[in-house]
Design a protein around this nucleic acid. Structure first.
Length: 271
DNA sequence: ATCGCCTCCTGCGCGC
DNA sequence: TGCGCGCAGGAGGCGA
């Protein structure tokens, strides 16, 4: 489920329930996620106070007085605040009980997500140390992206989905941003002019920012017991729209596979 | 260094 | 209905 907008929306949604609370219990119902949930996690977390909930790329960072809990939602993960004592759902693998009698529960059918712990400098953690800039920050700009493009024959779509180049551009928004910039997803990264890279940086920023805004609306109720997250499908131009007319020119949207991932584009508007 | 391919796992929608 | 198949929003890791 989560692309960056959902992760950011989740962060904003859970932080008020977590901040300044103490961890009262740690429940591991199934430790077999992408990596095993550390056996010593309860020992690390119990009795610790949560200072903040941050985000780096698609990692949620729950900072405590003793170290940082690292959460990743993978393809199918979601977090929800529940009242203590209510029934777990199938695929609720991990839960934290807090001093306000609420529980943070990780639900993840495909188990590609992760629950990890570090008491070192979070930026030195192997999963975070070599990540590129955040897409909405100033250090992700056209000068930077143009520079990273040099000598890269890889397709521009795979390039912007590479977390060493820029984080948080997932499969949906890669297609959407390239559509808005009028760039063909298969075009070699090094074969794109400065001006068009400028457009692409702008469209990545705007599509993500807009989606975060939408996420704030459609996911607003996700902490409710039956509040299934909504999705932004109504705002998509090309993703999942193969066979439909392009919203700009009415030519038929095409679907191809690039780096094992479905890719959608308008063959007329994107060159 | 860079790139293409594989992998982890469950659920769902589709065609027969 | 039931079954088999293909596909799904991520991303580390491997071999070439």
């Amino acid at each position: 489920m989560p692309e960056l907008p959902e992760v950011e929306t989740t962060r904003k949604g859970i932080e008020p329930y977590l901040k300044n609370r103490t961890v009262k219990s740690v429940t591991v119902r199934n430790p077999r996620l992408r990596w095993p949930i550390p056996k010593t996690l309860a020992k690390s977390l119990l009795g610790k106070k949560i200072l903040s909930v941050k985000r780096r790329a698609k990692y949620l960072l729950i900072e405590t007085t003793a170290g940082t809990l690292i959460l990743h939602l993978g393809m199918s993960g979601s977090l929800r605040i529940s009242a203590t004592g209510t029934d777990y759902r199938k695929h609720d693998h991990f839960a934290l009980t807090l001093s306000n009698k609420k529980e943070l529960r990780l639900h993840d059918p495909r188990r590609f997500g992760a629950v990890l712990w570090t008491d070192d400098d979070i930026n030195q953690h192997p999963l975070l140390a070599s990540l590129g800039p955040e897409p909405l920050e100033k250090d992700f700009n056209s000068i930077y992206l143009y520079r990273t493009n040099q000598n890269r024959k890889i397709s521009i779509k795979q390039h912007i989905m590479n977390s060493k180049i820029v984080v948080g551009v997932g499969n949906i928004y890669a297609s959407e941003a390239l559509f808005l910039a009028g760039i063909h997803p298969k075009r070699a990264a090094k074969r794109i002019s400065k001006v068009r890279i400028e457009r692409l940086v702008g469209s990545i920023k705007s599509v993500l920012a807009d989606s975060i805004e939408q996420g704030g609306t459609t996911l607003r109720d996700f902490v409710r017991e039956n509040g299934e997250p909504g999705y932004f499908a109504q705002h998509l131009n090309v993703y999942g729209k193969s066979g439909n007319p392009c919203p700009h020119c009415d030519k038929i949207i095409k679907q191809i596979v690039l780096g094992q991932r479905s890719t959608y584009y308008c063959p007329n508007c994107q060159r």
